Amino acid sequence: MIPQRALRRAFQAVGVSIPVRRLTPPRQSYSVRAPAHGESKTAVSPRWLSDTKTRIGKCITFGMSAPQVDEAGQILRTLGREWRELVAGSEGFLTDETRAGLHRHQIVWGEQDSMGHVNNVMYVRYAESGRCNWILNYSDHVDPAHKRAWRELVTSRGIGLILKSITVDYKFPMTWPDRISVYHKLRARPDETSESLVLDVLIMSERRQRPAARCFEDVVVYDYRAGKKSTLEPFMLEQLKKTFDLQEAAKKENLAKIQDLEQRVRRLETQTWDRPDAKEDFGSAV
């Protein structure tokens, strides 16, 4: 066995919560939560990441062999390296920096209210800034051949986008200091008749490593020159269709990764605390 005090220090360094007493054994997966309206039935719990770390921490308290320590370390490294992809990507959000509306954007002290929480109106600003940057990413990274047209979507010079409505579902009050990443995704695959885009928005707290808020945006395609609704340019429609397909691929890929991680964590549990002869190791008092 590996010395438990050394294990505790190592795993606490990467943010694993280690329970101080034996808990009631969990008999079900932590990964799936009840979906909100319009969400996938396979939506991952916002607490999946922290729950998984806690489960590994509990395994530590019952003693682990060298191979088990190595396996736990590999799982934790994956969680630390890919947490955005696993949490947001499993819902279909594209988390690459060239796709994010805001990537590791730093919250500033002045965005807090008198209660010391980030003011509610700031979440709307994060979502709106993220949406504009999401569009500009097409001009800068995805389809630079049509750079000017993509950039004009956020202006009133020709075909543009007008926010019709936005709703915000607050998950927990963020506080300074923190960093956020904001992701947008198409709720449906657009077609030649689409005169609006329905977007889901995820505002991710880096400090808590989970969604701080979810937004729903209804955006109208508008021809400022003609003064009426319009459809998207053919090249824009083609790129948005590709984006939707990438979203579906990201969802499938990351849900598969989560399922694999769940199975690996469950094996650690059955090898450590969840067995008839398991005894908790509190380590030496020295």
Rank of each mutant, 00 (worst) to 15 (best):
E152G: 02
I75K: 02
T24E: 11
E195N: 08
V154M: 10
T167K: 10
T231G: 02
R214Y: 09
G15N: 03
I75R: 02
H105E: 10
A188I: 14
N119S: 11
A127L: 11
K229G: 03
M204T: 08
A6I: 14
Y30C: 03
R187D: 10
L94I: 01
G160P: 04
L240K: 08
E71G: 04
F282A: 07
A127H: 08
D140M: 08
E152C: 03
E39M: 07
A213C: 13
R33E: 03
G92H: 01
S284P: 14
D70V: 12
G227I: 04
M115R: 15
A256V: 12
T231P: 05
R210L: 10
V69M: 07
W109V: 15
T24D: 11
T175V: 15
Y138T: 05
I135G: 02
R9Y: 03
D191F: 12
A212W: 13
T52H: 01
V182W: 09
V69H: 11
L79T: 00
F11L: 01
K241P: 12
I162P: 05
S181C: 12
Y224H: 08
F216N: 11
K251M: 03
R207W: 09
M204V: 12
L199C: 07
A212Q: 07
G116A: 01
G57W: 03
T24H: 12
K147S: 13
L86E: 00
G63E: 04
G227N: 00
L136F: 07
T231H: 06
L136I: 10
I180A: 00
D178T: 09
K252M: 08
V168S: 08
I75D: 00
V219T: 04
R225A: 13
G80A: 11
A278M: 07
G158W: 07
R157W: 06
I203L: 12
G101E: 02
I56H: 02
Y183N: 01
I159E: 06
W176Q: 02
R47Q: 06
A149C: 06
T52C: 02
P177L: 01
T98S: 11
T24P: 13
A256N: 11
I135A: 01
T61G: 03
P190I: 01
V201P: 04
A145P: 14
L153D: 05
R189V: 00
D96V: 02
P3I: 05
G38F: 07
Q28P: 03
H184C: 11
R264Y: 04
P46E: 01
G160F: 05
I18H: 01
L237P: 11
L240I: 05
D281R: 14
A100S: 06
S205V: 00
A66G: 10
Y138H: 13
V124T: 06
A6D: 10
T54L: 04
R27E: 12
D140T: 08
K279S: 13
T270F: 13
T193Y: 05
P3V: 04
M115G: 15
T78S: 11
M64L: 12
S65C: 06
G158V: 04
L197I: 05
T270N: 09
S114I: 15
G160Y: 06
V108T: 12
A149K: 10
A88P: 14
V44W: 04
A213K: 06
S165F: 08
I166E: 01
L7K: 03
Q74S: 14
A213H: 08
P173K: 04
V154I: 12
